[in-house]
C-alpha cells in the first residue's frame, strides 16, 4: 500500500470515528430520560466560581430550596444540586463536582438521607438522575468506579446501553431543550393535606445509616481540605417519631464534627409551616411549603455571612433570571389551580 493511500485511509478512519462519536452522543442525548435533568445541568450554565452556596441531597432539598427566591430575598447566589433519592455516597461525589466547578464558600447538605437504609444508592433510576447529568470529569468517574459493580458501571459509562429502550416512549419533550430556569430546584404544585404530627422529645435519637455516615465522614474531610464550610439541614416533612429521632441524631453527629445543623422539624411553627397546605405528599414540600422553608433558610444563610450579591456587575443576569422564573412559577400555579403564596 502506498503511503498516500495509507494516509487517506487513516484520515477516513478518523472522520468515520468522529462522525460516529457525534451520532452516538446525539442518540444518547435524545434517548436519555430528561426528568429532573435540569436540577444538575443548571450548574454548568453558571460562570466558574460564581456561586457562594450549593445545596446537595435528596428530593427534600430539591423540592424545598428555591435558589432564585434566595436571590430575590437575600441576594444569595446559589444552586440546587439536590436530586431524587440522592444518597449520601452520591452527594459526596456531587460535592466534589460542586467544588470542581464552583468551589463555593458553603455546601448545604440535606441530612434526610443520613437515616436511609444501608444502601450505597437508592434505585437505578434515582442514581442515574444524579450521575448521568454530571459532566464527564473526575468526580463522575470516581463515583461510577467507587459506587457500582462492573455490571452497572457499563450503564453509567455508556448511558445509551441503559436508555436505548426509550425509543418506544420518545415524545416531543425529548426534542425540546431541558428547562434549567429554576437554578436546580423542582417545584411541586399540588397539595395533600395532613394532620400535624406529634413532636418527639428533643433528646430522643435513633441510629443512622452506617454507610451514609462513612461517606459523610469523607464529605466532611473533603470540605475541610478544600476550605468549604459544610452545613447540615433538615427540611420540613411529615416525619414519623423514628424519623424525628434520626434527625435528632444528626444533631449529635453535627456537634461531634463541629458543624452547623438546622433541623426545621423542630421549628415548624416558627416558619409558619402548615401540614394542611404546605405538603405535596407526606415527604415533600409543595411550592408554598418550599417558599416558607427557603425564606427561613435564607435568613440563616445571611446570618452566617453569605454575601448579598445584588447589584454586582458579575450577577447582572440574576435579576432577569429571577423575574422570568417567578413569572413562570406564577403562570404554572395558575394553570394548575394552585393557590400560590404571594411572591414578595
Amino acid at each position: 500500500m502506498t503511503k498516500r493511500r495509507a494516509l487517506r485511509r487513516l484520515l477516513a478512519a478518523v472522520c468515520f470515528c468522529a462522525l460516529f462519536c457525534a451520532l452516538f452522543a446525539g442518540a444518547t442525548q435524545l434517548l436519555r430520560n430528561k426528568d429532573s435533568a435540569g436540577a444538575i445541568l443548571s450548574l454548568y450554565e453558571e460562570p466558574r466560581d460564581s456561586l457562594d452556596v450549593i445545596f446537595i441531597g435528596s428530593s427534600h432539598i430539591l423540592n424545598g430550596a428555591f435558589p432564585l427566591e434566595l436571590w430575590h430575598e437575600y441576594g444569595i447566589a446559589s444552586n440546587n444540586l439536590g436530586q431524587h433519592g440522592q444518597s449520601i455516597p452520591i452527594s459526596y461525589y456531587m460535592a466534589q463536582e460542586a467544588i470542581r466547578t464552583q468551589h463555593p464558600d458553603l455546601i448545604v447538605l440535606d441530612a434526610y438521607m443520613l437515616y436511609y437504609p444501608d444502601l450505597i444508592y437508592e434505585g437505578d433510576g434515582n442514581s442515574h438522575k444524579s450521575i448521568d447529568n454530571m459532566a464527564w470529569a473526575a468526580p463522575k468517574l470516581r463515583a461510577i468506579f467507587d459506587l457500582f459493580t462492573w455490571e452497572d458501571r457499563w450503564d453509567y459509562l455508556v448511558p445509551l446501553s441503559f436508555y436505548h429502550t426509550r425509543w418506544k416512549e420518545l415524545s416531543a419533550e425529548d426534542f425540546a431543550p431541558i428547562d434549567t430556569t429554576g437554578k436546580g430546584c423542582e417545584v411541586r404544585l399540588e397539595t395533600t393535606a395532613y394532620d400535624p404530627v406529634e413532636p418527639v422529645d428533643p433528646d430522643y435519637a435513633q441510629p443512622l445509616s452506617e454507610t451514609a455516615l462513612e461517606y459523610f465522614d469523607r464529605l466532611v474531610e473533603l470540605c475541610r481540605t478544600e476550605g468549604v464550610e459544610l452545613v447540615l439541614v433538615c427540611a420540613p416533612f411529615l416525619a414519623t417519631a423514628e424519623q424525628q429521632g434520626q434527625m435528632n441524631a444528626v444533631g449529635e453527629v453535627a456537634q461531634a464534627y463541629g458543624l452547623t445543623y438546622w433541623n426545621f422539624l423542630t421549628r415548624l411553627e416558627e416558619i409558619g409551616f402548615d401540614p394542611e397546605t404546605d405538603l405535596y405528599d407526606y415527604s415533600h414540600l409543595n411550592a408554598n411549603g418550599a417558599l416558607k422553608f427557603t425564606r427561613a433558610l435564607g435568613a440563616e444563610l445571611a446570618a452566617l455571612g453569605v454575601p448579598d450579591r445584588r447589584g454586582e456587575a458579575a450577577y447582572a443576569g440574576w435579576d432577569e433570571d429571577c423575574a422570568r422564573w417567578r413569572e413562570e412559577l406564577t403562570a404554572a400555579a395558575e394553570a394548575a389551580d394552585f393557590p400560590l403564596l404571594e411572591l414578595k
Binding site: 451520532l23 430528561k34 437505578d124 433510576g125 445509551l160 436505548h164 429502550t165 423542582e186 417545584v187
Partner: peptide, 26 residues
C-alpha cells in the same frame, strides 16, 4: 446497521420507566 443494534437491540435493559415518574420543573 450499528445504530439499529444500539437502539433497537435487546441488551442492557435495566431501564425502568416507573423509576422516572417525577415530572419536570413545573
Amino acid at each position: 446497521a450499528v445504530f439499529s443494534i444500539l437502539i433497537f437491540g435487546i441488551y442492557g435493559g435495566n431501564y425502568d420507566p416507573s423509576q422516572f415518574i417525577y415530572g419536570n420543573q413545573f
